[in-house]
Nucleic acid binder design. Structure first.
Lengths: 161, 161
DNA sequence: TCTAAATATGTAACTGGTTACACAAATGTA
DNA sequence: TACATTTGTGTAACCAGTTACATATTTAGA
């Protein structure tokens, strides 16, 4: 008897396995930060990197860059603001927008965080056995999803059944 | 400028991409069922398949087979019971256990559901271009995760930094 | 110039996972 | 046989995403 029914399910188990894996990464990353007495949370990483690269961005720009919904970003940013990692300034030219920047506190902590992230990258490389096959396969799947999403394809294939 | 910062991030973007993809599959599957006026929810699929294969199972057995926590299964099963898709009988030999089986209603709907699942499988095969490379790569990653989890590896690699 | 449409942000309700805890029943052992 | 341990189920509080809706500001066009 197989140990893992989702794997046994083949194609049909894919979705569940993606969820299970991403959850596992998330919870373990959270534990890692906690055990290192860091206030940082798992997916602040991508916000930090974006704001390092671009200096200042708005909620909508971040949502676009990460391809997440804007309420997801609002929640993330609010927590980072509350903890003092992000400053938000009303745009003087457009009073709808808030320009978000990393705070001094965030910048001061960056060296420590970068050591963590470097360890994370190395751990991932190790787990992927230093090749990018999985990343490439994922990128193809993302591209297929962008061309025609899963639901559209299901509908089409159901009609022709 | 890249369209998708998570892809640009390389290894570090992997977790977010897994989450994004699995969420997309989940929401689209949910929409598919809704538009076909089905009461079924996305991950009931795996429960149906398990109970077809094994006739009767307990919460704990299902949790083991799917490698999810037992409270996750309790929630799923409760909803399926409420909608009348699962019957639960106290085990006469062990009064802690409830033997779960598909209800008559569930069995009656199976042909329709199987048509949906077949469409889903075909759609996934199409998106994976009829090869199992992604599934194999995922299985390797799952195996690495089982050998030594992400957090353990991060800790080890941080110390040697 | 006035107003309709588009854009930026924020809020509410929902979903499907998690860990931590509680408790009853069964099992194993002194 | 009694009691400690293990096992099965259930509940509570939390988390990170979603869609749908609300509101304010800016932009565009008659």
């Amino acid at each position: 008897m197989s140990e893992d029914f989702l794997i046994e399910m083949g194609y049909a188990g894919l979705t569940g396995r993606l969820k299970r894996l991403s959850d596992a990464f998330m919870y373990q990353t959270r534990d890692f930060y906690r055990e290192h007495d860091s206030e940082i949370e798992p997916n602040w990483h991508m916000i930090f990197l974006l704001l390092q690269k671009n200096e200042t961005m708005t909620v909508t720009e971040i949502a676009d860059a990460l391809q997440l919904s804007h309420p997801a970003i609002v929640k993330l940013i609010n927590k980072m603001k509350k903890r003092g990692y992000i400053n938000s300034n009303l745009d003087p030219k457009d009073n709808r927008r808030y320009n978000l920047v990393l705070s001094q506190k965030a910048k001061k902590e960056l060296p420590v965080l970068e050591a963590y992230w470097e360890a994370g990258n190395k751990a991932l490389e190790e787990m992927l056995e230093h090749n990018t096959l999985l990343l490439e396969q994922l990128e193809q799947l993302e591209a297929r999803m962008a061309e025609a999403d899963f639901k559209t394809r299901m509908d089409k294939l159901l009609i022709n059944e």
